[in-house]
Write a protein that binds this DNA or RNA. Structure first.
Lengths: 343, 343
DNA sequence: CTCAACGGATAGAGCGTCCCCCTCCTAAGG
DNA sequence: CCTTAGGAGGGGGACGCTCTATCCGTTGAG
């Protein structure tokens, strides 16, 4: 404890070590490292040199406590593995890049209690803002978000009441639009294939909108199939096979996401089915993967990049501590008919 | 400043607020919230109740500074979008789940300077440990890692000298093994198709090992093709088309990853080529996606889940602050011949 | 009465940052 | 040549907020 710092190479370095090594005060070192305040070029160089030599890394814990400022933005999302959230992250990172803010990801696996825990954990670091996927949260989670005192942006979905701000699309409307397009193309015996996820509220809303539009046209779903877990591509195949076996007369397959849709498409092509003549297919999301398939699956992009950008802008643009909020930004996805729906 | 806390609902809550609300001392609240020390069930309940009601979230910034303990494990990886790292993350999370430790991800996009920045940022939060993909780092990054004073685990690769611990496979050996299998199956005019990533050292090592084994059999690569950016599946198609146009007589295509391999496979099947009779294909990684393809691509799993698990175990198992280190764990991938290589 | 369980009080610790102030140095004015 | 204003550069000390450590006091059971 009383030993001079130089003695023990394993001791963690502090500002004082750098200040002693460079012969200036801690204050000056701090100024240099933060690029703030007036420091002569010579002094600055000397300090940086010393810091580099020692291998000093500032302690943000202490810095944050002292400055009451944390350059972190929490991002709470259900999953990383379905190709949609990485793109949202890209949008967020792009915008945050030149603001000095830094995103930190938390994954909930579509479990409400996990989400609650992740939000709690995130808020305990007192971030500059929080971006959370979806509008549905446990009451406790909502309470924490409401109390947080920092901007909260709920993304992906706008069919509901946000705690603070929201950026997203209307999944209900998206479902409706797809149904309308399918009906307009002349398909009538339509099946829905989705993953079994009670907590994927957005997929559920799409289905609701979809059925709503069908009903308006006097139709109902000819069949539906749910599955969970495993490789989405493979599941898409299996589900498609099951549906076609059970309901050979369906003429359209609407998938809740592109991955299972892609599996279904591969299956149909393999079986030599006439796509989109005898049977049409559509997915949702507009993932890049689809570009490599033999035929382009009809889909609807979810504006993921843009959602990420806008959400980040709301956080970054927040005037210091001014709890404004209430902004709701609706984006409008476009339908990409691809090659799997008659025109 | 002098106003009592209750006055301003927007004020951020502190331990004191909870202690006042529950009628016990801050000390006791702290004990309850950390599950440490003796607190009667009744008191504990009362405190928790008060905390919940207020929506109190502990301030980890202050807690970490005081306790010199941060329950964070930094994970530095090149990318989230290629399906390999999410699985590593799954392994890490699984193990960390019941240790109270929490992973925090940083993404480098295969850029050394980004990596340096991410490592710096991570270390500035004084995490319990750091998991970094790869063994190749800038000198400055290596210096920081060496100085960090916390366990460092470099993952994925073991062909090199780790800073501290390492968990991974030998990519050079993996490349060799694949080449040997291909040669054993009777293929002779072999082409390599990879993404152009000067900083994907692991893909490079696989290629080196691959060529080494070819050389030993008196062979050289018949052709090679590189590409970068865009949808991997689509790129795989395009590259395959280019190679087959340029070198119509190749009888094997070795891809640096499964995604472009899958694209190539789809292309070959579409063109009606005899796979694996006239032409064989192989990728690398063993991604789940392959399960859904019409034919199973030959590949080699990279032990991703296991790598994540082992790395996390090293961090979690580290006796407090005892800088031991030096552990190197080699895992052995298995070749999955699938349906695209003759037997 | 003893002992254990429970929990209060108080005094730092931890490492930066913020605000305010001081010290030079330069340059213009006298 | 001296004086003085002004500003750049840099120092000093007070926090920030929670956890920890230590030392006690209280209470109830045996």
């Amino acid at each position: 404890m009383a030993t001079p710092p130089a003695q023990d190479p394993r001791r963690t370095l502090t500002l004082r070590d750098v200040s002693e090594a460079s012969g200036v005060s801690e204050m000056t070192v701090s100024r240099v490292l933060r690029n703030r305040g007036d420091v002569s070029e010579a002094t600055r160089e000397r300090v940086l040199q010393a810091a580099r030599t020692l291998g000093y890394v500032p302690n943000k814990i202490a810095g944050a406590l002292a400055s009451q400022r944390v350059n972190l933005v929490g991002v709470v999302i259900p999953s990383l593995s379905n190709m949609v959230f990485p793109e949202v992250m890209t949008g967020i990172s792009e915008v945050l890049e030149d603001t000095g803010l830094q995103p930190v990801v938390g994954v909930t696996n579509y479990a409400p209690d996990r989400e609650e825990a992740v939000i709690y954990e995130m808020l305990s670091w007192r971030p500059t803002g929080l971006i959370v996927a979806g509008l549905e949260h446990s009451p406790a989670a909502r309470a924490m978000l409401a109390q947080a005192g920092v901007p909260i942006v709920e993304i992906m979905d706008i069919d509901g009441t946000p705690v603070d701000s929201a950026v997203g699309i209307s999944h209900r409307r998206a479902g409706r639009q797809m149904a309308e397009a399918i009906i307009a193309a002349g398909y009538r015996r339509i099946a829905f294939l989705g993953t079994q996820m009670p907590n994927d509220h957005r997929a559920k809303k799409r289905l609701e909108g979809f059925e709503e539009a069908l009903a308006k046209a006097g139709l109902t779903l000819a069949d539906r199939e749910f599955y969970s877990g495993g490789s989405a591509l493979l599941k898409g195949r299996e589900m498609t096979e099951a549906v076609l076996a059970r309901s050979p007369d369906v003429d359209f397959l609407y998938y809740s996401n592109d991955m299972i849709g892609a599996g279904g498409l591969l299956y149909c092509l393999e079986k030599g089915l006439d796509v989109p003549g005898k049977i049409g297919l559509a997915g949702f999301n507009g993932v890049e993967l689809l570009d490599g398939l033999p035929r382009r699956l009809a889909t609807m992009d979810a504006c993921r990049l843009e959602i990420g950008r806008r959400a980040a802008e709301i956080i970054a643009g927040q005037p210091h501590q001014g709890v404004v909020g209430g902004e709701v930004i609706e984006l409008f996805p476009t339908l990409q008919p691809g090659d799997t729906i008659r025109r």
